[in-house]
């Protein structure tokens, strides 16, 4: 199971890298979304995918899944959520202000 997840996460990272190397800003933001999906799935996989009950004490199972990676992922999800929404608004604002979403045209040092 972990092998399969590793391959899937690898594909996600590959697509994220490809998208983030493109010129359009929206494609880059989609790339960051996929990148954070990959990172979160990786946290889950790295914590181990052994079978066990959901981490609720009411289940009264003999073994539970590891609760720590789930808490880490939840934290990482809200953080990347916040950053992504900021990024999207920033992209919207800079489209209004700069009139382009092409990264090639966002160069230089002068205050144009």
């Amino acid at each position: 199971m972990e092998i399969l997840m590793a391959i899937v996460i690898g594909v996600l990272f590959m697509s994220a890298t490809y998208l983030m190397l493109s010129k359009s800003l929206l494609r880059i933001i989609i790339g960051t979304g996929i990148l954070s999906h990959g990172a979160h799935l990786l946290l889950l996989t790295m914590g181990g995918l052994k079978k066990g009950a959901a981490p609720l004490l009411g289940e009264q199972a003999s073994s539970y899944t590891d609760p720590l990676p789930q808490a880490l992922i939840l934290t990482a999800i809200v953080i990347s959520f916040g950053v992504t929404s900021f990024f999207l608004v920033l992209a919207y604002r800079s489209y209004q202000e700069l009139g382009t979403d092409n990264m090639d045209r966002l160069r230089g040092n002068e205050k144009k």
Binding site: T32, L35, S36, L42, M46, G47, L72, S80
Partner: peptide, 16 residues
């Protein structure tokens, strides 16, 4: 954003 994702990945590896 990219370096933060790498940080999460590194922590994941270390945790495993």
């Amino acid at each position: 954003v990219i370096s933060s994702a790498l940080f999460v990945i590194a922590v994941g590896y270390l945790y495993s």
